[in-house]
Every structure is written in structure tokens, then in C-alpha cells.
């Protein structure tokens, strides 16, 4: 049986933990707000870009640019976004599970990984996979520059034939409570739902200026950048959301634990007092 002192010590330590989790929750809430603003601001551009690429890819012939060309799927590149830090509930394990599933489903192809975020890098380093590159997100807010670097690496590897297909896995930010891992095909660029596009596509062919090739050559790499950037922002917002929720429940659990321990503590204290009283009374009786 734990002594009164032991219990007191435990209560104190749990209280300290609760303070930390509470602080982390506050910090995440503030960061989440900012990340959320950023992602809502960036979504229109990314969606417009997707729309544009969609209508473009359904109209342009697949051999007009290397990034449109379908070369099969012998060598697949997988860009996996995770967070740098833990303590955010099941956030990273969800992403890693999704990646594992993807790898299993495509086991016939040679898969190389491009890992963004420390957690994913640490996880896959211990396993035998071909790792193309691993980078950390770093502190502060995710910048467009980082997305450009990721996009350049991936497009470079794709252009010189190291990869035939590139997929990305990131966490889509729905709300602070829900984040869903998403697998998306990045390269080659294909029209999303190209069949239905053609039906309402009474728009006919585009006029291109300066030329179809020039427009595609500048637009397609841009598209990859934008997608990489969006994934970065979505993942970052999701991470903060996940951390906030998990820290909130951790604080709640700590509170519950403190309640329980305090109850035990009081009961023990009361028992000790009663016992002491009994002893005194017993002693007084004996003296009579």
C-alpha cells in the first residue's frame, strides 16, 4: 500500500504533466489557427490550378509533354508527408499505415520513398526501403520555397527516368478533430475524371500563347509545386489539429487521474486520523 507521501508525490507529478499538456494544447491551438488560415487562403489557387490542369490534360495529347506521358508503373516514387515531432496522437501512425498499405498494394513495382518530415524518415530508416531523399520540415511555417525544392527533386527524377510514376501521401485537413490520410497520383499528370470532362467540354480546343508546348512546359512543373505546397500546408494544419485534440484529451485524463488520486489520498488520511484517535481512546481507557 502506497504511503500518504507517495500519493502526494504522484499527484504533484500528474499535475505537472497536466500543466505541460495544457500548454502544448494552447500552443497547438494558436498554431492551428494560423495554419488553418493559410490553408484556406491557399486552397482556391490549388483548386483553380487543378481545374486548369484537368481541362488541359483532357485536351492536350499525352505526348505533348513528358510530364503527361504514361510510362507504366515499374518504378514508383512515393512522397510521404509526416510531421517532425510526435505527441500528436495517431497522426503519424495513420500516415505511415497508409504508406505501408500503398507499398503492399504496389509490391510488384520498385518503390522509392521521398520522405518529408522527421517521423516518416525515422520510421523508414529502420526498414529496408530505397529512400530517395529525406528532409525535415523544420521549425516555423512551411514556406513555398520548400515545396519548390520538393517539386524540383521529384520532377527531376521523373524526367531522367528514375521514376515512372509519383504518388503523394499527405494528411488532408478537414477539421481540428478529423484529418484523413490521402493518396494522390502526382505524375504523370492525368485529367481527373477525364470521361465526364469531355461531355461538358463544349469549349473546344484552347488557343495557346506563345504555344502549346511552352504553356505546358511552364504550367506542369508549376502544378507539381502547387500540389507539393498544398500537401505541406494540409499536413501541417492536420498535425496541429491532431496535437491539439490529443493534448486536450491528455489534459482531461490527467485531471481525472488527479481526482482519483486525491480521493485515495483523502481516504487514507481519514483512515490514519481515525486510527490515531482509536489509539488515544484505547490508551485513555487503559489508564482508568
Amino acid at each position: 500500500m502506497a504511503s500518504l507521501k507517495d500519493i502526494k508525490r504522484r499527484i504533484k507529478s500528474v499535475k505537472n504533466t497536466r500543466q505541460i499538456t495544457k500548454a502544448m494544447k494552447m500552443v497547438s491551438a494558436a498554431k492551428l489557427k494560423r495554419a488553418q488560415d493559410e490553408i484556406t487562403a491557399a486552397r482556391p489557387y490549388a483548386e483553380k490550378m487543378l481545374e486548369l490542369i484537368g481541362s488541359l490534360a483532357s485536351k492536350a495529347s499525352s505526348d505533348s509533354h513528358p510530364l503527361l506521358e504514361n510510362r507504366g508503373s515499374a518504378k514508383i516514387g512515393l512522397v510521404l508527408y509526416t510531421s517532425d515531432r510526435g505527441l500528436c496522437g495517431g497522426f503519424n501512425s495513420q500516415l505511415l499505415r497508409t504508406a505501408e498499405r500503398f507499398i503492399r498494394e504496389n509490391s510488384s513495382s520498385e518503390i522509392s520513398l521521398y520522405l518529408v518530415g522527421k517521423r516518416g524518415a525515422e520510421y523508414f530508416k529502420r526498414r529496408s526501403f530505397k529512400i530517395l531523399n529525406a528532409r525535415v520540415i523544420g521549425g516555423g511555417r512551411p514556406g513555398y520555397g520548400a515545396a519548390v525544392e520538393i517539386a524540383n527533386d521529384v520532377v527531376g527524377a521523373y524526367m531522367n527516368g528514375e521514376l515512372d510514376e509519383v504518388h503523394i501521401i499527405f494528411s488532408e485537413f478537414k477539421s481540428a478533430m478529423t484529418q484523413t490520410p490521402v493518396t494522390q497520383k502526382l505524375l504523370p499528370v492525368t485529367a481527373p475524371g477525364s470521361t465526364e470532362k469531355k461531355e461538358d467540354g463544349g469549349q473546344g480546343e484552347y488557343l495557346y500563347e506563345p504555344s502549346e508546348g511552352a504553356v505546358l512546359a511552364s504550367l506542369l512543373p508549376k502544378y507539381v509545386e502547387v500540389q507539393a505546397f498544398r500537401a505541406l500546408l494540409e499536413t501541417s494544419a492536420s498535425e496541429h489539429g491532431a496535437r491539439m485534440t490529443s493534448m486536450d484529451s491528455a489534459s482531461k485524463n490527467a485531471g481525472q487521474m488527479i481526482g482519483g488520486l486525491t480521493l485515495v489520498y483523502n481516504r487514507l488520511r481519514q483512515a490514519a486520523i481515525t486510527r490515531e484517535l482509536m489509539e488515544i481512546i484505547g490508551g485513555a481507557e487503559a489508564l482508568k
Binding site: L52, L56, Q203, G204, E205, Y206, L207, Y208, E209, P210, A214, V215, S218, L219
Partner: peptide, 14 residues
């Protein structure tokens, strides 16, 4: 530079 009015033909440019 180019100008656009309603009913322009589909056009894509940098």
C-alpha cells in the same frame, strides 16, 4: 497585352 470581352474564344497563355 491582350484584352478580353465576354464571349472570348478559349485561350490559355502565360
Amino acid at each position: 497585352d491582350f484584352g478580353v470581352l465576354a464571349g472570348h474564344t478559349p485561350f490559355l497563355t502565360t
